[in-house]
Amino acid sequence: MRTPPVAGPFAPARRVPLGLVVQGLLLMALWLALSGMYDAFHLGLGALSVVCVLWLNARLRRARPIGPGRTEVHVLRFVAYCGWLLGQIVLSALHVAAVVLTPRMPVSPRVVRFRSDQPNDVARMLLACSITLTPGTLTVEVDADEFTVHALTGATARGLLDGTMQAKVARLFSDGPGRAVYDVRWEEG
C-alpha cells in the first residue's frame, strides 16, 4: 500500500489513512519516550493527546494546504543529506567563529536574491531551513521560487550560490531536478 501521488491542492478527502497511522505511531513513540510511565492511565492520556494533535494537524492542513507536487521523501537520501548538512554546519560555524574572533572583523554583509526550482513546498521549507541553519547565511524571505538571503561575508554567499545544497534538496523529492540556482541578483545599497 503506497501513498498515491497527490495532484493539485491537498484536498482533505484524499488524505491517506496510512500516513495518518504512521504519524500517530510516531507521536505515540514520542509520548512514551517523554513520559517514562507505562501504566494504563498514562498510556490513555498519551492516546488522547495523540488524537488531539492529529486533529489539530488536520485542521491546520485544511487552513494552510501544502501546494502541488509529490511530497514523499527518499529516506536514504534524506539520511545522507542530514549527514552532509551536519558537516556543512560545523564547517561554516568555524568560518563564522573565525570572522567574529578576528580583531578587524572582516564582515561584508550582502543581500542576494536567487531563484531555485524546487519540486514542492516541503522542499522549499527544507531549503530555507537548511540555508538558515548553516551559519553565515540567513533566509530573510521566501516568495514562491525566490529566496532572499542575507550573507555575512562574500565567501558564504558564493558558497551558497554554487547550487550544491539546492540540487541536493531537490533530489530528495524527485529524480529530475530543475535548475538549482538562476536569476541571481545582488541587492545594492
Binding site: 563564522v96 567574529v100 564582515v107 538558515t132 551559519p135 553565515g136 540567513l138 530573510v140 542575507h150 555575512l152
Partner: peptide, 12 residues
Amino acid sequence: DFFTRTHASGKV
C-alpha cells in the same frame, strides 16, 4: 547590526 548578529549569535 541586527542581521549580522543573527548570524553569529542565533546560529553559532
